[in-house]
């Protein structure tokens, strides 16, 4: 039974929290995403998103870049290689639970 981190079958409780799964799914589909866009796509408050991003950053799954544009600071988020691998392994584990072998 797994509770944290990356167990052998790829199921990852850090990623499995609903909003974190959606954050990882969104970031897996792109190179990087702006914080405000992720917030809009997930329809969550900035504080909730910040909290989840912090958890993912602490796990080494997400990294951020800050860029100033038109005197406004924008934060761009992206999955690290570790994060992408962990997310894909987690999705594979979910598919295995469902009984869908996937692609």
């Amino acid at each position: 039974m797994t509770t944290t981190g990356e167990p052998a079958d790829g199921f990852d409780t850090t990623i499995h929290a609903p909003n974190r799964l959606r954050i990882c799914a969104l970031l897996d589909a792109v190179e990087s995403a702006e914080f405000g866009t992720v917030q809009q796509q997930l329809d969550v408050s900035a504080s909730v998103l910040s909290k989840h991003i912090s958890v993912l950053m602490d796990a080494g799954y997400v990294a951020q870049n800050k860029a100033v544009r038109d005197t406004r600071q924008r934060v761009w988020l992206h999955l690290t290689e570790t994060g992408r691998t962990a997310y894909q392994a987690h999705v594979a584990a979910l598919r295995a639970i469902v009984g869908d072998p996937g692609d």
Binding site: P18, L21, R22, A25, L26, D28, A29, L42, R95
Partner: peptide, 10 residues
């Protein structure tokens, strides 16, 4: 449901 949520986000 989790897979559907992930698919929807993508």
């Amino acid at each position: 449901a989790a897979l559907q949520a992930a698919q929807s986000a993508q």
